[in-house]
């Protein structure tokens, strides 16, 4: 087939994207903000919604949790990726297995499994009580701590796979050269390996942060009454207060931030690595 005719094969995918994804989004924003409500009120509405106490609190919470999750995921993920990049055979397969199985397990199931562990009558509290370490159950669930655990669990594979791809590309000869020149192990790591893997760190942190700020399922199930993230606020204004324009304004804000970060991600990394080239 001639190359330009081959390109036409992209049409079904783009038709799908356009009709079922982009068009509903555009229609939703246009309809709620420009048709259903008076366009001249738009500015006031933007200010009213974005500067509301609930929204400001949600923005702070969202950023704080996303930051905590990104850092935790990085600290946990870096050693795993490093290990994978330097191992072959059975151990490699075993660790990949442990990363991949949760990766492809339903998010709701993964969240539920941590609820089973952390709950008031959960397994951790049961175990601690059986060991007579505590008399009253610890409040492990329904707070920021549990949100961070749950989200870290869901997002860790993205980080590991991104870092692994970057580390696989590091030229071993550079490390050997550093050793040959007399650098110590820790020094090689700090001065050669870490800078060479920086690219992966940035890509991984970006993708985890992007996915974190829009997260809904895990914080909604594992968070306490005061831990409201932006995505949850959006869902509530549709489901509970039926405030469609408010939901649209908040969505527009969250979407803009997400797209902005995605643009940065697009610049610094190969988008084909998004799922980690499993």
């Amino acid at each position: 087939m001639k190359p330009h005719r081959t390109t036409l094969l992209m049409l079904p995918a783009f038709a799908m994207l356009g009709c079922i994804f982009l068009a509903p989004l555009a229609w939703f924003f246009v309809h709620t903000l420009l048709i259903d409500s008076d366009p001249s009120d738009l500015r006031d509405q933007l200010v009213a919604v974005l500067a509301s106490r609930a929204m400001l609190r949600a923005i702070v919470t969202t950023n704080w949790i996303s930051l905590l999750v990104t850092v935790t995921v990085l600290l946990l993920g870096y050693p795993i990726a490093y290990y994978l990049a330097n191992r072959r055979g059975f151990r490699f397969t075993l660790v990949v297995f442990c990363v991949i199985v949760p990766y492809f397990t339903s998010i709701i199931v993964r969240t539920y499994s941590w609820m089973v562990l952390l709950g008031r009558e959960g397994l951790i509290n049961q175990a601690l009580r059986d060991l007579h370490l505590i008399s009253d159950p610890l409040p492990l669930l329904y707070n920021q701590f549990s949100i961070v655990i749950g989200m870290t669990y869901v997002l860790l594979p993205y980080m590991v796979l991104t870092l692994f791809a970057a580390m696989k590309g590091i030229d071993r000869n550079l490390l050997l050269a550093a050793r040959g020149m007399g650098a110590s192990g820790p020094m090689i790591f700090r001065r050669v390996y870490l800078p060479l893997s920086r690219h992966g760190v940035i890509s991984g942190a970006l993708i985890v942060f992007i996915l974190s700020i829009g997260f809904f399922i895990t914080p909604a199930l594992m968070g306490g009454p005061s831990d409201v993230m932006v995505a949850m606020l959006i869902e509530r204004s549709v489901e509970i207060t039926l405030d469609w324009p408010g939901a649209a304004v908040m969505s527009l804000f969250l979407l803009s931030v997400t797209l902005l970060l995605y643009a940065v991600y697009y610049r610094v990394t190969d988008v084909r690595r998004l799922m980690g080239t499993v």
């Binding site: 989004l25 229609w27 997400t258």
Partner: peptide, 18 residues
């Protein structure tokens, strides 16, 4: 790849609206 980047809550609300 946008569908996995855009927060699913937003996508879902827009799809529901339509």
């Amino acid at each position: 790849l946008l569908p996995i980047i855009v927060p699913t809550v937003i996508t879902s609300i827009a799809m529901y609206f339509l």
